[in-house]
Structure formats: C-alpha cells, structure tokens
Simulated assay, not measured.
Amino acid sequence: MRISTTIFLTDETITPVRLARELEQRGFAGLYVPEHTHIPVSRETPYPPGGPLPREYGRTLDPLIALGQAAAVTERIALGTGITLVAQHDPIDLAKQIATLDHLSGGRFTLGIGFGWNVEEAADHGVDWRSRRELGRDRVALMRALWADEPTAYEGEFGSVRASHAHPKPVQKPRKRKGAPPLTGPRTLIGGGAGPKLFAHIAEYADGWMPIGGRGLTETVPALREAWEQAGRGPEGPQVVPYAVHPSPGKLAHYRDLGFAEVVLQLPSADEAEVLRTLDAYAQYL
C-alpha cells in the first residue's frame, strides 16, 4: 500500500519545493494539496467539523502552481489535488492547466475533485449551490473533450466547446469503459460523503473515491462497488483512497485488508520543523 501525504500549503508553512524533496528522499508515494480560492469573512456557512475555521483555509496556495513547483524538483512522487473545486473554474482554462501539469510531470498527476462546503465561496464564482454537482460533472466532460486525441466538440447543460486543437495532452492514457467513451486525462477521484448520488457520479465518470478520514468504509465500499458494477464498469473495481488520515498501525492494516492500494496521511499546516518531525513519525508506516 502506497503512503502519500496531504497538507494545507500556505504562505506561512513549509514550501512546496522543500516538502516535495523531503517526501521523495524519504520514500513517500505522493503529495496532495487542497484548494480554496478565498474565504468570505461573512462566514455564514459553518465549518463542517464544527468550531472556528482553521487559519490555513484562508491562506492556501494555488494547488496547481504549488504542484508545478513540486514536480520540477522531483522525479517519482505522485502529485494530486484533494480536492479541486471544479465548478468554480473556467473548464477550458482548467483543462489546459491540468494537461500542462500532467505533461510536465511525466504523467504523475491525480485530479481529485469535489463540490465544496462553503456556499459563499461558490456564490462568488457564480455557482448555484443546488446544481453544483451537475455543474462539476459537466465541467469534467468538457475538459475530457479537450484532452481527447482528436479535436472533439462538447455541448453540455452548462457549457460547450468547439472541436479544437488543444495541446499538450495529458500523458496518462484513456481508460476503457463498457458501452461509453473512454475516460481521458489524469486519474480522477471524487471526494465527498458516502451516498447513492456520489457513488453514481463516481461510477459514471471517475476512477474512484477519495473519502475524507476513511471512517465506515467496511459498510460503504460494498455499496460503491455495487454502483460500479451496475454502471458496467470494469472488473478491477473502483479505486478507494482514504484521505487526510491520522494514521495508526491498526487503521492502515484495516485499509490494506480492504484491498486499498493507497492512503493519504494528513500533515500539519505548519513550518518546516514541525512538518519534518511529523514525517519522521510517519516513517514507521513506509
């Protein structure tokens, strides 16, 4: 099982370059980073875990730029978002940024996508909260048209693009789907709480699920696999990557027994010294 990490990189933490080098030298498998473009100070939406919103939420670095720096100083570690708020982006611009990062990193990028929790942040991007999941689905479909080998047009509910020359292409090869066009572009994982709607979206247009914290997976993963089979997806099953995990030997053994190939451990949003101490503590799991 691969041991990756995630961190809220900010203007006050360890830098992407320093962290990426340390991860690769120590043998960790990857680096995932989250996204918030801004946090409106009105704070009408409560923080999901409860209590005050941690400082780092309003100070996050742009994830694709940070991962670009990480890619430039490493050769092996995987690079990913956990998650990209796809509905809040222009999909043509985002498709170009993702394809460029995957190209320059040699195919090391994982696109983790999600639908957000902060209503005010989404509203400032013009996102109608009630339709954000459908909008995100549409955004991904449009991006995949641009990533296709041949110029491909897309006409969706929320956006469209003409058949276009769009390079570079992502390095990662299309994944076949029975009775549907292949999935183009980087490996795509969808984050969010377990439920029929989320699992239907994963089975329709993603490679797997990125559950936060990884609790209750013994009960929920069979439901995801059932949705996967009903959608006619391949026998290999959906990838499940527990995310932002605070590890223990028993927890990681449980994930291994469930057949997971990767887990993403939470690092503190902190300065270099504290992050490196945490990596030292996590080394026992490598």
Results as ranks from 00 to 15, higher is better:
5 T>A: 10
9 L>C: 08
11 D>Q: 09
13 T>V: 06
19 L>D: 04
26 R>H: 04
26 R>T: 10
28 F>L: 04
29 A>Y: 02
37 T>V: 13
40 P>N: 07
43 R>H: 12
47 Y>T: 11
49 P>L: 05
49 P>W: 05
52 P>N: 07
53 L>G: 01
59 R>H: 14
60 T>I: 10
60 T>H: 01
60 T>D: 06
63 P>F: 04
64 L>W: 06
71 A>K: 06
72 A>K: 04
83 I>Q: 02
86 V>T: 11
88 Q>W: 02
90 D>A: 02
92 I>S: 00
92 I>L: 06
94 L>N: 00
95 A>G: 00
100 T>D: 04
103 H>V: 09
106 G>K: 05
108 R>S: 03
110 T>R: 09
117 W>I: 12
121 E>H: 13
126 G>R: 11
126 G>W: 14
126 G>N: 12
130 R>D: 03
135 L>D: 04
135 L>I: 14
135 L>C: 07
136 G>M: 11
141 A>W: 00
142 L>C: 07
142 L>E: 05
143 M>W: 03
144 R>S: 00
156 G>Y: 06
161 V>Y: 09
162 R>F: 08
162 R>Y: 07
163 A>G: 09
164 S>D: 10
178 K>L: 13
179 G>W: 11
182 P>D: 11
183 L>S: 03
186 P>C: 07
188 T>E: 04
197 K>G: 06
198 L>G: 02
199 F>E: 06
199 F>S: 03
203 A>F: 01
204 E>N: 11
206 A>I: 02
208 G>A: 02
210 M>G: 07
212 I>W: 15
216 G>L: 10
219 E>K: 13
219 E>I: 08
222 P>M: 08
228 W>A: 01
232 G>Y: 06
237 G>N: 07
238 P>Q: 07
246 H>K: 12
264 V>Q: 13
278 T>S: 11
283 A>K: 13
285 Y>H: 14
286 L>A: 08
